[in-house]
Design a protein around this nucleic acid. Structure first.
Lengths: 199, 199
DNA sequence: GACATTAGTAATCAATCAATTACTCGAGCG
DNA sequence: CGCTCGAGTAATTGATTGATTACTAATGTC
């Protein structure tokens, strides 16, 4: 397999494992197994575990930005009404759950703020999103804050494993309905897929 | 020093270190150093690192619940107007930042959802807060969701280290002003204290 | 004044993990 | 063929880490 392809394959699996277990909680061996290759090859391809994680974060941030920019483009070209911008951005965010590694590995980077390298990149990334929504999308600052807050709640619910473990709990069901809206079915579908893949 | 007192002292320091570095990223040695005792004693007092972390989470959750219940009591006894309940609860939450370990160790537990023991406890704790606000405080479900979202954004901003590294960044300053409100000064004060303590 | 009991520590161990080294295998190619 | 180069692994290593063991020093107390 050509190196570029293998690289992207590793990044995809690393994204998932890092997203689930966090940066310090993930071993390069776990990533190697997920990608179906040997541990030394993971290290060799990215230099260090830290560099791999930073690349995973950058890839996730990139996909998030692309998704948001596409919605903004649709608004600018008049394909969607300006009043719907917020709802469409929210929809774009929730859609990203389908590749859960994207949102989760980003979140895992966010809570690694104490780390010099990862923390710096995480803060820059977070502010990049903030500016994108405020300046490029033209959303009022406090609405951006509120939008980001909703996103962080979604991230937290995913990270805490709520979709995989809410079995019949009335409060959990209600909270998830309110947080994920119409996308809830898709979220649960992904959850059951991932549970079975893990087993 | 009597064991009970030492225990609480260790829990306090463990809360801070776990909150900053996360569960897998923290060593029992780091906690021992912070508490000024030997590493084996930390392990002996709590059995395992995992049990210590669960106790840290439980302690943090307990303090959060006490703070919220106090606000609800003030509303019930008429000492604060019912219309101010949400604002007062928000204030109570932001006040907790002064012991940053409380919010951060809880957050570190939330993103450990994949772990059987910690994840189960984290989910139960999160739902406990949800029910407290909805049932005991009587807040409409979607307002509770929104309140929790704001809390998760605050947690994320703290975890990402924004208060310690926003130096002159216009976007970061604006976002923090919007998120922490009047409490921003106190947040930054704690931040500088912790930075100097770390050095 | 022996004797527990409590509050700790020093030394060490087994396991884990990221990283390095030294290889192997196969495809292209002159 | 002989030879290199890209893709990959097996074996190993040095450092870290949670946990265990075996101790010691102080504090009552009968």
């Amino acid at each position: 397999m050509p190196a570029a392809e293998r690289r992207e394959l590793i990044l995809g699996h690393a994204s998932e494992v890092f997203g689930r277990r966090g940066y310090p909680g993930t071993t390069t061996e776990q990533i190697a197994q997920a990608a179906g290759i040997s541990q030394p090859y993971v290290v060799r391809m990215f230099g260090t575990k830290e560099k791999l994680f930073v690349e995973v974060m950058e890839r996730a941030l990139g996909k998030l930005i692309v998704a948001f920019r596409e919605v903004i483009r649709l608004r600018d070209s008049g394909e969607i009404p300006a009043g719907e911008l917020g709802a469409r951005l929210g929809q774009a965010y929730v859609d990203l759950i389908e590749d859960r590694g994207i949102l989760m590995s980003l979140m895992q980077g966010f809570i690694q703020g104490h780390d010099d390298v990862i923390g710096r990149r995480a803060r820059a990334g977070f502010l990049e999103i903030y500016r994108l929504l405020r300046d490029e999308a033209g959303i009022p600052a406090d609405d951006v804050r509120s939008f980001l807050a909703d996103g962080m709640l979604i991230n937290t619910l995913l990270a805490i494993g709520m979709p995989d473990n809410f079995e019949g709990d009335e409060a959990a069901t209600e909270l998830m309905n309110l947080s994920f809206g119409a996308k809830l079915d898709a979220v649960l579908c992904v959850a059951s897929e991932q549970s079975s893949r893990q087993a």
